[in-house]
Nucleic acid binder design. Structure first.
Lengths: 212, 212
DNA sequence: ACAGCTACATACCTACGGTATGTATGTTCC
DNA sequence: GGAACATACATACCGTAGGTATGTAGCTGT
């Protein structure tokens, strides 16, 4: 029987017989976000029903609407998590190099490679703009675009590349890499396409550093 | 009364008392596409109901489903039209300059400026990826990305910029300009942001032409 | 002019997002 | 420790919107 789990039988995650409310909530939210991410990634935002999310999470819509205001907010939470994971990868790669401009390059490489994951791509690049809108994407606490901006601004401030406004270059890099990611995974030979893109990105960074 | 128009009273567009079937179809499709574009642009794809489209077009859903397979296909037709208009503007700007690389620059400028229109932006940049998918966008007869690719490839072939693969740079330009357009219209001073973006794009083009 | 096809209109079905309400479980305070 | 309250759900229901099946008026070839 596919009925929702009861608190008495407990979940698979928490062994305590009498979990605290916080633990119950956290576990439910985790189940919902996990189920939602899986379905949003494979089926897409529009084609994913909240009933399907609840069934996969082993919960009913009562639980979902208790923790999230609606489908859009649920997707927003999934998106925010995705951005957080991306930021961690980018920041880690960014920190491996001391030179400010080379650090940006490593961050860009990390973002590009992470964005090759079809799940990441579907959520953050294909569905998020239409589902959340551009402003809501930007207002997410830590987002990749803002991270890119900070890296670019720092490289300019430190004189690693000639002085210029940060915003236009930020858009070119962030948008360009996003588009690149989508093209690469759909190429006949994705691995070759990735190598080609990284080589070209290297040349672009060199050209930008050398420019007046 | 908001009833659908009858063929006997005729439309506002065609004065003939007995329009041919082709003319009837063309007029209806035109009405539907026009109404759909207006609503998709303002309300967005998901929030636009087909009933609303039909009401605005002065037609019923029978007519809509006679000419289009569904909501997605209707949006696809609107998107295709939008791409066509963009391509006309881009191609016109592209043709004003003889130098292959400068021609690409003018095409990019035209694309960027055209993409500042909120209607264009909402349809082609925000909703299209999620609603149509990336492949369907690419498979549209004449799309901006493919146009960019041709321009870049020509500039490389003619030696206007150092030899390099066309795909990565195409993605960087097309994706970067799209992102730029979305950032510009949401800037505090859009006009200043546009000027800044164009100046920066100019520097980018110079740097790419000068690179090894 | 009549048979047939096209171009719609009308009525209906179903799935899904959202809501209102009921209920069980944890928490707090005396 | 138990009563009063808050939290965390489950259940039942509604409205909307995409899609479909069927009917019909008008154009078209013969």
């Amino acid at each position: 029987m596919t009925t929702a789990r009861t608190a008495t039988q407990g979940g698979t995650r928490h062994a305590r017989v009498r979990p605290t409310q916080q633990e119950r909530s956290d576990a439910t939210v985790e189940d919902l976000l996990s189920a939602a991410r899986a379905l949003f990634a494979t089926t897409g935002y529009a084609a994913t029903s909240l009933d399907a999310v609840c069934e996969r999470a082993g919960v009913t819509k009562g639980a979902l609407y208790h923790h999230f205001a609606g489908k859009k907010q649920l997707f927003g939470a999934v998106y925010q998590r995705e951005q957080q994971h991306l930021n961690e990868r980018i920041t880690a790669a960014y920190a491996t190099v001391t030179d400010p401009w080379e650090a940006v390059f490593e961050g860009c490489r990390a973002y590009l490679e992470a964005s090759l994951d079809p799940a990441v791509q579907r959520i953050t690049l294909l569905d998020a703009p239409g589902a959340l809108g551009w402003e809501a994407m930007r207002d997410v606490g830590v987002n990749c675009r803002e991270l890119t901006r900070k890296g670019v601004a720092r490289a300019i401030r430190k004189g690693a590349i000639p002085a210029r406004p940060a915003d236009p270059l930020t858009s070119m890099l962030y948008g360009g890499l996003s588009e690149n990611a989508m093209a690469i995974v759909r190429a006949d030979d994705p691995q070759a396409a990735l190598d080609e893109a990284l080589t070209d990105l290297r040349r672009l960074f060199d050209a930008l550093a050398a420019g007046n």
